[in-house]
Design a protein around this nucleic acid. Sequence first.
DNA 1: AACAAAATGTTATGATATAACGTTTAAAGA
DNA 2: TCTTTAAACGTTATATCATAACATTTTGTT
Lengths: 140, 140
Amino acid sequence: MAKPDPDTQPSLTRNQKAVVTALKGADTPLTAYDILGLAPIRRAGMKAPLTIYRALDKLIDLGLVHRIESLNAFVHCGHGPHDHATGFLICTDCGRTLEVHLESCERHLAGRARDQGFAVDDVRVEMTGRCPGCAQAPAP
Amino acid sequence: MAKPDPDTQPSLTRNQKAVVTALKGADTPLTAYDILGLAPIRRAGMKAPLTIYRALDKLIDLGLVHRIESLNAFVHCGHGPHDHATGFLICTDCGRTLEVHLESCERHLAGRARDQGFAVDDVRVEMTGRCPGCAQAPAP
DNA sequence: AACAAAATGTTATGATATAACGTTTAAAGA
DNA sequence: TCTTTAAACGTTATATCATAACATTTTGTT
């Protein structure tokens, strides 16, 4: 008799679930068209880019997915919804990303902005380089 | 008899000059297609997107232009070439941007990355909000 | 002049993202 | 429960951003 998802999730739709599951299962960020090409997504009946973008928009809104601007790609947020800024470490070798939280840095960055009279809504940080695994390997 | 540009500029080509001049004259970031549509650019004979992108690539390489990832747009770098990371404050009202330098923040951010065993090449920060002028005006 | 490297012109195409419109589904109030 | 409203969805078309491939020209160097 209990409702399906009391308060764990705001009950995602079928499309939204399919997309977030796809991102959870990926080990690199996926573009909307990457997602569109996945078998489970087609099986869920999703076949137009807009369907993917709509699900992504909602998931980003909920804080379950992040967009990586410099890749035009999307990742699952492993940390659950959070209010402070996040940064991404993007490995240029293997393409994997690592999410880092920026509690303290955010204050610093937003402070620099406020020095200029700027009211900050959102802070996005993206860093490229080589991840622990790839940093050990000889440069290609 | 003297050379045209002794050491002020690494002697930009005509296309590169046209593009950097266009960006200097703009008060918001411009997309490649924005630039392509400008009269001085057409007068310089540039008429294909690739022509613009090639000039932009070189100018970014030289540190004279920055790309704003979240806008797919480009701005002139008013600070001349520099080695430390830069951040951008992007006003969601008027579309103007402000460049801030991140000498100290960069150490902090890169430090967070190194904690994770990540070797950082490049740091990009983009912040959205409202600029001094627009912050005063009543919210739309 | 001869060569090499960089920049350019041109055409075509790939990749990313949204508009517009009608229908279906789900949530909320009477 | 029925009605109303908002959100999500499907479908088609199209807008926007970016690069591939290849031939040619320009520029800098020996």
